[in-house]
């Protein structure tokens, strides 16, 4: 009973926020009032959540990594093509994508350690390099797989991928020392270092882990759509930002619950926003703006939550509000 109560308390925020957002959508757009829509939102949240889980490691470690989008691309194209050439089936695609993604992340980690340049710069360079490599390898045609590979867009493939990703993320973050070291380094680099944590190594490992999830996301992508085309001129930035936004929303609704589940809900909310833009026929030029506004709104709420609570507490005590009256 006690445990159940705690559970409810921890997850109520993210659940209610997500439910409220979806209810809002369904209220204003009658066309979306169906179980199918709901199901498809939940389904479409899976892939971006997986990438978001990887991005979380970077954010917690204090890394700015704009390279994950390009890592997705290179993992999909190289990993996908290799698996296809060797005829390894979908399992091969998943493994190859993850290996390539992990390697791609590790390269940026190694560069970071060798060059001692901030991750934000390394990651932009990495992004450009990976995008160009993708334009060259396999004739610059990207990757395309035949129908037999397309099993990751629906049940049970998608759910299995979700579970696999969640387990990896959960274990790395909560069950191994690396997760704790990442949190320590991201929260206070000096104290972490003074306590014997290898800061450079930890930050580099976070980059590798993000690469691993980029690979997983790449696998889900090729295993759903069958094709990934090359992108250039920082075109992969969009993928990266989308994942970051899922994380930001996740962080703002996490409450006392599990952050990886919160990020998944964040991804669902993101999908919902995009769907709303579609049904209301808002041109794509504006959709980025709307998404940005939503993210800011979430952040605003979460960063000010303690203050809002403090004000409520003070009101109960009958204190004055001079700064609100102004």
């Amino acid at each position: 009973m006690q445990a159940a109560k705690k559970y409810v308390k921890n997850y109520i925020v993210m659940f209610l926020v997500t439910a409220a957002m979806i209810a809002l959508l369904m209220f204003f757009a009658p066309a979306t009032r169906s179980f199918t829509t709901l199901l498809s939102l939940l389904k479409q949240g899976i892939a971006p959540a997986i990438l978001g889980w990887g991005v979380l490691f970077n954010i917690k470690a204090g890394n700015w990594d704009f390279g994950v989008g390009a890592e997705v691309l290179i993992a999909a194209i190289i990993g996908g093509n290799i698996a296809k050439m060797l005829g390894m089936g979908i399992a091969g695609v998943i493994v190859c994508c993850m290996v390539v993604g992990f390697a791609a992340g590790t390269v940026s980690g190694i560069l970071y350690r060798l060059l001692r340049i901030p991750t934000i710069i390394i990651s932009i360079a990495i992004m450009l390099i990976y995008e160009s490599i993708c334009g060259i390898v396999f004739g610059g045609k990207g990757v395309s797989l035949d129908l037999s590979y397309l099993v990751l867009s629906h049940f049970p493939g998608n759910v299995l991928m979700w579970i696999a990703g969640f387990l990896i993320a959960y274990i790395l973050f909560f069950k191994t020392r690396i997760g704790y070291n990442i949190k320590a380094v991201g929260s206070n680099i000096k104290i972490a270092e003074d306590n014997g944590i290898n800061v450079k190594r930890t930050k580099a490992l976070a980059l590798s882990i993000a690469g691993l999830f980029a690979g997983l996301y790449a696998a889900v992508n090729v295993g759903s759509s069958g094709a990934v085309r090359t992108v250039s001129a920082m075109g992969t930035m969009g993928t990266c930002f989308n994942a970051m936004m899922c994380v930001f929303i996740g962080l703002s609704i996490v409450g006392g619950g599990n952050i990886f589940i919160a990020i998944y809900f964040g991804a669902v909310v993101m999908q919902m926003i995009q769907m709303a833009l579609m049904v209301f026929g808002i041109p794509t030029q504006y959709s980025q703006v709307v998404v940005a506004i939503f993210v800011i709104a979430f952040m605003l709420f979460s960063t000010n939550a303690p203050e809002i609570r403090e004000n409520i507490r003070r009101k109960r005590h009958g204190g004055s509000f001079p700064h609100l009256a102004q």
Partner: peptide
């Protein structure tokens, strides 16, 4: 020597 933002046991 303690890191704000982390729990006591961490």
């Amino acid at each position: 020597g303690t890191i704000a933002g982390m729990t006591v046991y961490e």
